[in-house]
Computed example of a mutant assay.
Amino acid sequence: MIKYYNRKNKTYEIEKVAGEKVLEWAYTSPIGMKLLEAVIKKKMASSLYGWYLDRGISKKKVNPFIRNFNIDMSITEKEIKDYLSFNDFFYRKLKPSARTIAADPTSLISLGDGRVFAYENIDLDRLVQVKGFTYSLRELIKNDPIAEKYSKGTCLILRLCPTDYHRFHFIDSGICEATTKIKGAYYSVNPVALQKVQKLFCENKREWSIFHSDHFGDVLYIEVGATCVGSIIQTYAPQKRVNRGDEKGYFKYGGSTVILFFEPNKVKIDDDIAEQTQLGYESYVLLGEKIGVKKGGLNMEN
């Protein structure tokens, strides 16, 4: 059971997990763990399933998925009948009116829909994966000089469930450098898996880039793949200016994670998110929602 904090209602809710029974079995039973290591975490398994989800035959999965997880189709660009495959539906675009981008440029906004943890004054060698499990930023991006820039800075971890909108966006106007890709495994990023696999983020396939933002300094974006995520697709153009809220990319099928790192003294996270993180609960956020402010900005209220 995964409990998270709903900021809007100020209540705790239980996450409805896609494939929950299989996930529990794979990460908690002896046989499941053996199969996980031998097959499930491998690229071939995720690539094969991703290939199927790109085919028209997978379209039959769309309606049951919408019904089971109460997906709001009134805010999507396409109608159900127009999706060509399950993946086409999975990385669906939303209508421009579906999400509101906080207007104040000194407000830090969420890069997408999902559940967020926020850590301030971070230790690069003891980043929190879950309680009791830590990892190193140096190991995560395999670039020590860049990692050092974020010592004592701020880390945001946005977990996208399979039921979430699966595109990720820029938090500010600015220019993003080219993406560096790192090969790896395909473990789930669900909390069940995070509690079982040490240094999971450092084990999984991932991509990173430096975003030179206009208001928040040099922001390190890291996209982490997961089980059944056949591809991380970057849709932005490197070295070209982008606007706040513009799309950076999307994930194909599966739960995924985007991690942001900010340099010291650049942002202050909203109190409720920081408090819930300390209590061990993720906070549910939507693309464009205010989650913090620029330090020294015009608006330092939470």
Rank of each mutant, 00 (worst) to 15 (best):
E282W: 08
D214C: 15
Y250R: 02
N9C: 09
N87F: 00
K10L: 13
G225H: 00
G32M: 05
G288K: 01
A118I: 10
K95R: 03
N243H: 12
S151F: 13
K93H: 00
V189G: 05
R159K: 15
F251Y: 04
G245H: 04
E282R: 07
P162M: 05
T180Y: 04
V258A: 01
G254D: 02
M1H: 14
G292I: 03
P96M: 07
L35P: 04
P145F: 11
L260R: 05
R99C: 10
A193Q: 09
P238H: 14
V192S: 10
P191Q: 08
L156V: 15
R126I: 14
I66D: 00
S107G: 15
K252R: 07
M44N: 15
F170M: 07
I171A: 03
N265E: 12
T257K: 05
V192P: 07
V62R: 00
Y221R: 03
L156N: 07
E289C: 08
D144R: 12
T154K: 02
I291V: 10
C202M: 09
C161M: 09
E139R: 15
Q278Y: 13
D104H: 13
K34D: 13
L48P: 10
G153Y: 01
E301T: 07
T106H: 10
K95P: 00
D82V: 09
L53T: 00
L140N: 02
M300I: 08
S136F: 13
D246S: 04
C161F: 10
Y49E: 09
E37F: 06
L140D: 01
P264E: 06
T235L: 07
G254R: 00
L35H: 12
P30D: 06
S231P: 02
G153N: 03
P264R: 03
R241M: 11
E223W: 14
P238R: 13
Y253N: 00
I40V: 13
I75Y: 01
T100Q: 05
L48V: 08
Q239M: 14
K81I: 04
M300W: 09
G217D: 04
R126G: 13
R206Y: 03
K16Q: 08
V128T: 12
L94N: 04
H215T: 11
D72C: 05
K152C: 15
T227M: 11
L124Q: 05
R92G: 00
Q278K: 15
I66T: 01
V197W: 02
Y4P: 04
L127F: 03
A26F: 03
I66K: 00
E223N: 13
K152L: 11
V130Q: 08
Q276P: 02
N299C: 10
C176D: 04
Y12P: 09
L127A: 03
T277R: 07
F216P: 02
K196C: 07
W25E: 13
V229E: 02
L94I: 09
D144V: 15
V267C: 12
N204F: 08
V219P: 02
I57D: 02
L220P: 10
N87P: 01
A193Y: 03
L36G: 02
W208C: 12
D125Q: 15
K10I: 13
E13R: 10
K21P: 06
F201A: 05
T235I: 09
Q195S: 11
Y4I: 11
F69M: 01
R206W: 06
Y135N: 10
F261Q: 08
G114M: 02
Y250W: 06
V285H: 01
V242I: 12
Y186A: 07
E223K: 12
T134V: 14
R67W: 11
P105W: 11
T76D: 01
